[in-house]
Write a protein that binds this DNA or RNA. Sequence first.
DNA 1: AGCCGCTTGTGAACGCAGGCACAAAGTCGT
DNA 2: ACGACTTTGTGCCTGCGTTCACAAGCGGCT
Lengths: 262, 262
Amino acid sequence: MAAQRDQGHNGDQPPAAVTDVSARDVPAARERARAIPEAAVARLAVYLRVLSGMAEEGVSTISSEELAAAAGVNSAKLRKDLSYVGSYGTRGVGYDVDVLISEIERILGLTRKHSVAVVGIGNLGHALANYGGFPSRGFPVAALFDVDSDLMGVPVGGIPVEHIDDIEAICREREVNIGVIATPPSVAQDVCDRLVSGGVQCILNFAPVVLGVPDHVEVRKVDLAVEMQILSFHVARRADEALAEVTVDGTRPGVGEAVVGR
Amino acid sequence: MAAQRDQGHNGDQPPAAVTDVSARDVPAARERARAIPEAAVARLAVYLRVLSGMAEEGVSTISSEELAAAAGVNSAKLRKDLSYVGSYGTRGVGYDVDVLISEIERILGLTRKHSVAVVGIGNLGHALANYGGFPSRGFPVAALFDVDSDLMGVPVGGIPVEHIDDIEAICREREVNIGVIATPPSVAQDVCDRLVSGGVQCILNFAPVVLGVPDHVEVRKVDLAVEMQILSFHVARRADEALAEVTVDGTRPGVGEAVVGR
DNA sequence: AGCCGCTTGTGAACGCAGGCACAAAGTCGT
DNA sequence: ACGACTTTGTGCCTGCGTTCACAAGCGGCT
Ligand SMILES: NC(=O)c1ccc[n+]([C@@H]2O[C@H](COP(=O)([O-])OP(=O)(O)OC[C@H]3O[C@@H](n4cnc5c(N)ncnc54)[C@H](O)[C@@H]3O)[C@@H](O)[C@H]2O)c1
Ligand SMILES: NC(=O)c1ccc[n+]([C@@H]2O[C@H](COP(=O)([O-])OP(=O)(O)OC[C@H]3O[C@@H](n4cnc5c(N)ncnc54)[C@H](O)[C@@H]3O)[C@@H](O)[C@H]2O)c1
């Protein structure tokens, strides 16, 4: 079938030394939540989207095999991922789509409200603020910030842009949970610090810099240049391989059929 | 120190079953290139950016410890990553910044030209097309595509938008290596197929769908909703932990100091 | 009611990536 | 010229995540 190989791009940073200061030799109880590998969490989010699509199409039950195919993963892995959430399948039948959606949402914490603030309303910030996919998935955009005085008060995606200097106060007031940084790299650390002092605990960073944050803050970065370079690496590798392939046995890499994702 | 925990979000998909059909029990030679873990490739790209910054500031030599701190990783891991590239350090001194830059660029395949095509010039596509960070890093934008007739010929970031129906021909003609999909999810698979038949081997997908592609095509996806949901999960986990923490020994997670990344 | 076949859930094995610690190697100072 | 110091490169161990394979469980069919 050959769906895409998902991101191989992943972790670094001492998983137990720096970030996980707290969770060790603790009784148990929420141990279950902690035990979910981050990679599995990422996949759960994908399953959730696929399941939502299924639900809209009126599908009420799905087997691990079908869901795995739709999500582009191995069915064993899918079942193990779902087992982190709990046992909500029916043997011989499969999973109830609605139940699974509810349970995954619960585990991912999507039952809470997660207000988002976008900082840096330039090219990228505009696109993010206008994007309907966030509010519709439970991430309402609560505030936009910039330094540019021309932007002050201008509504983008229905939300007026506010001045960066008010960021702490506004974030606290509106209980912003997630800060999105779309400013130039040079000011990203400063913006990050301000978000943190505004009580924001989760940050999604688009600026190509490594942010330093306190232990209790979670940062994820989206670095397009890195993505490009990883692709570039694969181009180079493929070129080498194709060369070696031909040299060794004359076989050329097959072209295969294009499989439809959903 | 506590820099950010990098993406824990990572691999899935059978690493040896689907994608790596070709590279096994091969003589050796380029075996070196294949042997680099994808996670290490992602970090190499980060090191490269940090090093570029260093070079601009006139730094000519850097130790693994310094570079590791700047990149937010463990120094041992950094050295191991660099060892995949080769032995270009000088013991007792460190690495020559320029040499390291050249070698990482070589490994990442950045010595070749990588033309990029962006498909779907909406909110996100505009931002991408206008982004100066791609051309400056060796990824010139060679073409833009959309279906919207109002956009035809309109220059975005200096490149005129062309019709999606010409995509195969233009991609072949301009030797596009990397296709970026920023269309609505519903047409993403179709666009993907067209890119592939236009000879594009690497795809960066922003649409929230799982793309099916032939084995020889590499897909990476950037899924902001998934990123948000991973953050959401951590919010939930933290809330649970904080609760348990207080319940068990009365200690509250420390607030720590905000460390500056660079 | 009992059997059959299908699908889940998971125990166990495997493999890869991360981290430690040290020997090798080179530099700088005297 | 030699020794002491610094820093690299890497072997080994540990731990996590993925995969396999199968027993347990449930619905449906006879
Ligand atoms: N545009 C893209 O497609 C793209 C792609 C990858 C990465 N990025 C990164 O995303 C970031 C934003 O890119 P962009 O193209 O939108 O840049 P941009 O220059 O269009 O926008 C930056 C915005 O940040 C604002 N800003 C500057 N200093 C600020 C401060 N101290 N506080 C608040 N706002 C401030 C500016 O006024 C501007 O509106 C950059 O770091 C860039 O490297 C962008
Ligand atoms: N805007 C964001 O910040 C954001 C964030 C995350 C994900 N995304 C995803 O990125 C994609 C684009 O988002 P957007 O906000 O730019 O949407 P958009 O609607 O603004 O832009 C989509 C563009 O694609 C074009 N298009 C439609 N069908 C096409 C086809 N068959 N061939 C070529 N072009 C076609 C449309 O004309 C439009 O210009 C979506 O899949 C969205 O889910 C966007």
